[in-house]
Design a protein around this nucleic acid. Sequence first.
DNA 1: CTGTTAGCGCTTTCAG
DNA 2: CTGAAAGCGCTAACAG
Lengths: 339, 339
Amino acid sequence: MTTIYDIAKRANVSSMTVSRVINNKGNISEATRKKVEEAIRELNYIPNSAAQSLNLKKTKLLSLVITDITNPFFTKVARGATDKANQMGYQLILCNTDEDYEKESEYIDALIAKRVDGVIIAPTGDSSLKNLKKLMKNRIPFTLIDRKIENVPCDMVLGDNYEGTRYLLQHLITNGHQRIAMVHGPLTISTSKERYQAYVETLKLNDLTVSPSFLIEDHYKQEDQLAGINHLLELPEDERPTAFFAVNNFIAIKLIKQLRQGGLRVPEDMAVVCFDDLELFIELDPFLTVSSQPAYDFGYMGTQLVIERVEGNSPTGYRSINLKPELVIRKSSGTSIKE
Amino acid sequence: MTTIYDIAKRANVSSMTVSRVINNKGNISEATRKKVEEAIRELNYIPNSAAQSLNLKKTKLLSLVITDITNPFFTKVARGATDKANQMGYQLILCNTDEDYEKESEYIDALIAKRVDGVIIAPTGDSSLKNLKKLMKNRIPFTLIDRKIENVPCDMVLGDNYEGTRYLLQHLITNGHQRIAMVHGPLTISTSKERYQAYVETLKLNDLTVSPSFLIEDHYKQEDQLAGINHLLELPEDERPTAFFAVNNFIAIKLIKQLRQGGLRVPEDMAVVCFDDLELFIELDPFLTVSSQPAYDFGYMGTQLVIERVEGNSPTGYRSINLKPELVIRKSSGTSIKE
DNA sequence: CTGTTAGCGCTTTCAG
DNA sequence: CTGAAAGCGCTAACAG
């Protein structure tokens, strides 16, 4: 491995001079700069960033901590994050927590060991607070994306879960639906909780009853069946829901699969709406009615905010960016139903 | 930032002793180990891996270099790679080259600077050879995934492009198709080239004519239109293709969109088949007939192979793993056509 | 079983 | 404009 000393020797200068030309710092005569640059080229020298990091206490490493890159929402987030990171000269370490607090903790420890400059994280849930505190203790800035944790002083890039939910439900209600069930995730996850609350509020505002049996909880894990759905479907026709609001697209797909297994067609027998789009899919078949969120921007903006903080270009206060959802009406919500 | 010396002082031992308990190396009395461990806990000490790397010349950093995480094939690859990496105690840096050799080069330089222990790469094309040589010069092991480069001594995890193509075409031919067009990518990419060659071979074997105008090239970039398609569609009915073989799912979607814009239905008016599945999508609508590749395994195995090499557990020779595709027949290829 | 010394490759003083 | 010395936090090699 060629080091800065090899270059120094070859160019007949000290290592300091080499360092200076590499980093474009201080004044160097054109002549010696040329010499050094040539030596660098000849020996294919690339500075060792471990050594740099040790000195500078900066690694130019960021990490994106999400639950699952395989979820199309997070795929887009990751694209946005890598784009911004690389544009700014950083590398991005990817971590999948699988909604598991323990895994998240292990990752956080590893990231601290690596001394990453900053973290962009969609936490697994409220208990992640402990992990965030660990980051704070180690002075590693982070921005929360998509999911909020209360009382954490940090930048955030969040969606508008109330508005998104309202869009979806109003659309269903306008179409004549009165009995709308919801499938949500753990309420320890802010997106799930807020969409849940918005669901309750919106129904009430529209004088619709909120029935506990219409609220199904899923664990955001890989299991195949949504418990409680089949029970709902066995209700007499005039009591069972005519529409479902799924908290996200992953759940919606699970749900639709299960509805079909139960012999129901979507949207003819059951309308379905959800958060987050499935972009590629939609090109082939504009099917799901969704509140589409700008996933790419979550990653891009989230990364921008950490970098600003890492580099000391942030305002003193913490910023919270609100990304608006957009209602996209497609087939799965059907047309108006007869009452 | 707390260092190994802080721990040493607190535990009344030397830094070496601390180092030994951290790394579980050498013999330590139970008593001092306890003391040290307690000090570590009390001060929340986490070793600085930049310092470790500088000594050990190991970073426990790997990188996955792909063209676009947003492509569902690579999304799965990434999941497989992160899973294996983390299982083995490595972190994974994600790089998207966008099929751009220049971007790839920049990434490679950055990765060399970071002294990553290994790289898992789907190269942008044959010219990537130069970048791979750079890695070799820097003694960074890599495994090639999905795309092969000739004459590079390294481990590889590849699909069987011949077999996959044959499956797809035989299926179409069995269904009565005689005029099958192909949309491929740049022939500097091995997958595209091999599928192209397999296309030619298979048609010949079946005594079908290979018409140059039936071979459409796409650039694998974001452009909206596939040049040359419209021209094909303007041919008289008995001359125009009755089926298309798209080199991958991204292209297939582009193609189908364009066919529809031209007023053609798939599969009624035009059958379409391609490589690589769209897993989530397929749950909602089993549409595309594909040669499905085990994308996850490309990432997982690829990572396993580099790690083995990094850690010196590889055989002397280089290994080439062949992952078989599976033909999944769905709607887009239609049923038998009348001749 | 534990400690000392030196050095990984670079940059930050401080001199010159 | 350039260089010498010291140190970032850790571990390998050798002593004891």
